[in-house]
């Protein structure tokens, strides 16, 4: 990284500025949008900037954040995962069934089972998409329904509550004044950022989204990478399931309905292209935060949820519009 400054010394066609306002905006536009939003909200609501409120926002976005990170991997490969909400609900149910206050399974087993349930369903998605070439939209749409069905079958349609206090710590506990779900989200974010930025695997994710044929001809195992991104999304659904069950003190069979839409929205607002190959995890982070801050701010202001929906939708469209104009100017 330290080398990057010396790079521009390679043969340069007459004075092309490597940075200007336009490229700065396209790189950091989302950050600026987020800051503007925060400034506006802190002006109109005196409560917005409070430490507790900011922690609330972070706690509220952490579940969607974890799902959106998995979604980013999938979308970068030109895929989509519509099943995240249902897979999350199923994982939550599986984990909760071993996390009852009366039963003594400890904390490790429910965590492993929850993550495992997500991993298994995600791997099925990955296998069908990578090995049998089922279009991701179709496969995960099917999984959306199948995972929801499994959740009902597994739970008999009834919620599982009375969870052990260890388990609830995952959703309600604090470490050094920071809520545990926020720490989990932050950890996942850092791992994902590092993976996409610095590992060969991350590079391949971008490459197969950018051009699968060229990637295959360059010796990249496209199937394995494709499989992996769905498995990653699945295991993150498992984590989100642990978090939501612990946060709401129950695994509810109807939990997570339509969560895939918020996850996709966060990724898209964050500038990741649905056509694959382009986008950054940091964008997703700010996409998640923007959605969270809008929800929180409008709650604080006492604005009707009808307007909340309207504003959120408008922001998605505007984000994609900006993305488009960036493309055509390139």
């Amino acid at each position: 990284m330290s080398q990057s400054s010396s790079l521009t010394s390679s043969p340069v066609p007459k004075g092309k500025p490597s940075h200007n306002l336009a490229s700065f905006m396209s790189d950091y536009g989302i950050v600026i949008a987020f800051i503007v939003l925060c400034v506006v909200l802190s002006v109109v609501s005196p409560y917005f900037l409070g430490v507790n409120n900011l922690l609330n926002v972070l706690r509220q976005v952490s579940i969607n954040g974890v799902l959106a990170i998995g979604m980013t991997f999938v979308i970068l490969t030109r895929g989509i995962d519509l099943s995240v909400g249902s897979v999350m609900a199923f994982s939550a149910m599986v984990a909760a069934s071993f996390a009852g206050a009366s039963a003594d399974y400890g904390l490790i087993l429910p965590i492993l089972l929850g993550l495992g349930a997500g991993l298994v369903l995600g791997s099925i998605n990955g296998l069908m998409v990578a090995r049998f070439a089922i279009p991701p939209f179709v496969m995960t749409l099917g999984m959306l329904s199948m995972a929801r069905g499994l959740t009902y079958i597994y739970s008999d349609g009834m919620p599982i509550s009375s969870l052990s206090s260890h388990f609830l710590w995952l959703g309600q506990g604090m470490v050094a004044g920071i809520p545990v779900p926020v720490l989990l989200f932050a950890t996942v974010f850092i791992i994902a950022w590092f993976t996409l930025r610095y590992t060969a695997f991350g590079r391949y994710v971008y490459a197969i989204g950018g051009n699968p044929t060229a990637s295959r001809l360059s010796g990249i195992n496209v199937r394995r990478i494709t499989f992996s991104v769905y498995a990653i999304s699945g295991i993150l659904c498992g984590l989100a399931g642990l978090m939501i069950a612990a946060r709401t003190s129950a695994a509810l069979p109807q939990a997570g309905v339509a969560y895939e839409l918020d996850a996709i929205a966060a990724v898209v607002i964050g500038g990741t292209s649905l056509a694959g190959g382009k986008g950054r995890i940091i964008g997703t982070l700010f996409g998640v935060l923007i959605i969270g801050v809008i929800n929180n701010g409008l709650d604080l202001l006492g604005v009707s949820s009808f307007y909340q929906q309207l504003v959120k939708g408008a922001i998605i469209v505007i984000a994609v519009m900006l993305d488009r104009s960036r493309l055509t100017n390139a």
């Binding site: 609330n56 939501i244 604080l300």
Partner: peptide, 15 residues
């Protein structure tokens, strides 16, 4: 929804 009400109430308790 329980999850939705949880977030809503958190925000109201702030406001």
């Amino acid at each position: 929804s329980r999850a939705e009400s949880l977030s809503l109430m958190e925000n109201w308790l702030t406001a």
